[in-house]
């Protein structure tokens, strides 16, 4: 009975601590979804692959979204012509490198500031490196799901950010191109290709009037809160259960080994799929029994790849790309975390 009480108290404490941050996260993500124009952002990105990957990783400061919000944003970035390095860097780093998550991590690990700093450094390095790797693929379209690559401009049209769908920028007569056309004045026609159609129907909500924006914002907030909150409940329940029900000897033997602890926490991160805004509190409940490196591996790897995220990634990338992302991110996280365990902890 006492065990049950402890589990409930633990669970409620995690929920009560995490809820404000979740709320803040969804509020930010909803505001910026409506008020930041990705096209202007892409135009400002550096063209150099390494710098692009770094810049993409840092864009998270403008879109404080956790890993559920960042896949739709990354998809919009890709479709609006962002280079692969920028999009992949953003995809992997944005859930961690943003003010809300950094603050939440600081709240949880106040007395271990090295965890906060290393989380940022590791996430940034891994995301930049993987983004850089992906930039060797000049035309990213073969890596994407066909329904997305169809909507994308070909990379040969020069600066993709300025790509104007009504002016394909080639000298080929419009009559020789396939597609859907709207006939305007005689002799003039407006090509209604997929990219335009996409823009017409799913244009960034930035252009909508303010009242509609606010309504969209409220809807988006409630929707994200509902979805992420459900996952948070599951995560908190698992954390509470593990702490109370699993014998301490097992946790200690698993959590004190420099390698087993990292593997255990990485698998936990995959399975629990807890939102990056609140995952520090989850990790905190393991802080006294698990090595610092393993906590870091949880905090770095979880936001990049987890079960919930894989479903989202499948809507953008082909499966083999997800395998690359998973393998690269997993190996680098493991190596970094092991370094911490062997040399710092």
């Amino acid at each position: 009975m006492n065990q049950l009480n402890n589990a409930f108290t633990l669970f409620l404490s995690l929920m009560v601590e995490a809820m404000p941050f979740l709320l803040l996260g969804v509020a930010f993500s909803s505001i910026l979804l409506l008020f930041v124009d990705e096209r202007k952002l892409i135009a400002a990105m550096p063209r150099n692959p390494l710098l692009g990957a770094l810049a993409g990783s840092l864009v998270g400061f403008l879109f404080p979204v956790c890993e559920c919000g960042n896949v739709p944003v990354a998809r919009r970035l890709l479709m609006k012509g962002a280079p692969a390095s920028v999009a992949v860097g953003f995809l992997l780093a944005a859930p961690t490198i943003n003010p809300v998550v950094i603050w939440a991590t600081w709240t949880a690990f106040r007395d271990q500031p090295e965890i906060v700093v290393l989380r940022i450094v590791f996430s940034l390095s891994i995301a930049t490196l993987i983004g850089w790797t992906f930039s060797s693929q000049k035309d990213i379209r073969p890596l994407l799901q066909p329904n997305i690559s169809r909507l994308m401009p070909a990379p040969s049209t020069g600066n993709p950010a300025k790509d104007n769908p009504s002016n394909p920028g080639t000298s080929v007569s419009p009559l020789l191109q396939s597609g859907t056309y709207l006939l305007q004045q005689p002799g003039q026609m407006f090509q209604l290709d997929n990219s335009t159609a996409y823009d017409l129907f799913a244009s960034s909500p930035v252009s909508k009037p303010l009242a509609a924006k606010l309504k969209l914002m409220l809807d988006n907030m409630v929707q994200e809160l509902r979805e992420l909150g459900g996952i948070l409940v599951l995560g908190a329940a698992i954390a509470a259960f593990v702490q109370v029900a699993v014998p301490r000897e097992i946790i200690l033997s698993l959590g004190q080994g420099p390698i087993t602890s990292i593997l255990a926490m990485m698998i936990l991160a995959m399975v629990v799929s807890i939102c990056s805004t609140v995952d520090s509190f989850f990790a905190l409940s393991f802080a006294s029994t698990f090595t610092s490196g393993s906590l870091l591996s949880f905090l770095v790897f979880g936001p990049m790849i987890d079960l919930k995220n894989i479903g989202l990634l499948m809507t953008v990338f082909r499966p083999r790309v997800i395998v690359y992302l998973f393998a690269l991110a997993g190996q680098m996280t493991f190596v970094f975390a092991l370094l911490v365990n062997l040399h710092v902890g």
């Binding site: 998809r75 979805e227 459900g230």
Partner: peptide, 21 residues
Amino acid sequence: SSQTHTTLLPPNWSSAILLGV
């Protein structure tokens, strides 16, 4: 007016779980 979102849990489940908690 929903944004494109895919999640692990069906939305009604999420709401019900949250309400229950």
